[in-house]
Simulated assay, not measured.
Amino acid sequence: MTERRVNRMVQGLPTQDGAGVKLKRILGQPALQNLDPFLMLDEFHSDQADDYIKGFPPHPHRGFQTVTYMLNGKMRHRDSVGNEGIIDDGGLQWMNAGRGIIHEEMPQQSEGLMRGFQLWVNLPASEKMSAPGYEDIPGSQVPVVNNEVGQVRVLAGSYADVEGPVKSHATEPLFLDVTIEGGELSVPIAAGHSAFVYCFDGQLAIGQSTFATGTLAVLSDGGQVTLSGKPSGRAIIVAGQPINEPIVQYGPFVMNTEQEIHQAIQDFQQGRLA
């Protein structure tokens, strides 16, 4: 199987979003605006309540999906179509904004560590006006594959014939949380799918490319990727089928044309979004 290599590496940029939540924007910044079908990747990581306590009050979305993966902490989701749930350690929320949704994500803790990721996944034109939907997956329902070099949490897609709990989506996503304690770990990725590895603890290597905490490695096309711990590390591996359609984004709206963006803004302003 053809090995994927590292095409480039990107460092996240400190920023704020929501009501002042401090985070690191890794994908969706000048150095890496998008990686079709992925539009944004943020990491939040702080044990200072002032950095996250005000959360993300009600705000709109249209035309894509949001994925929130919580490593540590507790956050409540509530939206305009009646969904509500609390995500905590190891849990995952996958929300389809589709034709429109207004949601909020608010911390359910006043102290302690809050750490995790939010990933934005684009939708093809045929699904941008689909009905909004929501999957709430507790950490206890995320399957874990243990092997001689570490551990793989299968959030979406499959690894070692173990299927993740996320239902099928248009981009055929793969989302793994891998821990490597020495040795090598090979992960098959569908040929033609865009893929990246984000190291968030320790240090890893892919071929001759070594990267450490806070670095995203964009992978070449091919088959599997083989990671090794240097001496150990933890990362998310994310892959998906490119959509290959125009991307027009205005804040929380991602469509294919300027006209569709203007319509989204108008629908929101006139209360027709969700």
Rank of each mutant, 00 (worst) to 15 (best):
G28F: 04
E104Q: 14
V187Q: 05
L174W: 10
G139H: 08
F196Q: 07
R272L: 12
T68N: 03
L185M: 15
F175T: 02
P173H: 06
D221P: 07
A19L: 10
K24S: 14
I180K: 02
P246V: 06
E84S: 15
S168A: 15
D50W: 01
P37I: 04
L174M: 11
R78H: 09
M255H: 06
V81N: 04
V21L: 13
D36W: 08
G214T: 07
N122T: 08
H61A: 03
A195D: 08
Q118T: 13
F64I: 02
Y69T: 01
E181Q: 14
K128C: 04
A31V: 01
V248W: 06
K24L: 13
V225K: 10
L13E: 14
V178K: 01
P37D: 05
G63N: 03
I102T: 12
M129G: 00
K54C: 01
S46E: 08
V225I: 11
A195T: 09
E43Y: 03
G90W: 06
P242H: 10
P124N: 08
N146T: 12
S168W: 00
V144T: 15
M129R: 10
G12Y: 04
Q48Y: 03
S220V: 11
L32F: 04
D79C: 06
L176F: 04
H262I: 04
L176A: 08
G229I: 10
E127L: 15
D17E: 15
D36F: 06
F44M: 06
G182C: 08
A125V: 07
G20M: 10
D267K: 13
G271D: 05
V81T: 13
P252T: 03
D136S: 13
R76E: 15
F211C: 11
E135T: 03
V144N: 05
G20S: 11
A160T: 00
S232W: 10
G214N: 09
I265K: 12
V152P: 02
V145Q: 12
P107S: 11
K22H: 14
P57K: 04
S110T: 13
A190W: 00
P138M: 09
I236A: 09
D201E: 15
V178N: 02
G240E: 08
P231Q: 12
A239N: 09
G73M: 05
P57Y: 04
A170W: 11
V10C: 07
P252V: 02
Q266S: 14
R4G: 09
P143V: 08
A205F: 04
R153T: 01
R78V: 07
L27Y: 06
T15D: 13
S46Y: 05
V238S: 08
G271W: 02
Q48R: 14
Q118P: 11
A217S: 13
A156E: 06
P143M: 09
I189G: 05
D136N: 14
R76P: 00
L23Y: 03
P242N: 09
P143Q: 12
P242Y: 10
V154H: 07
G73L: 04
Y134I: 03
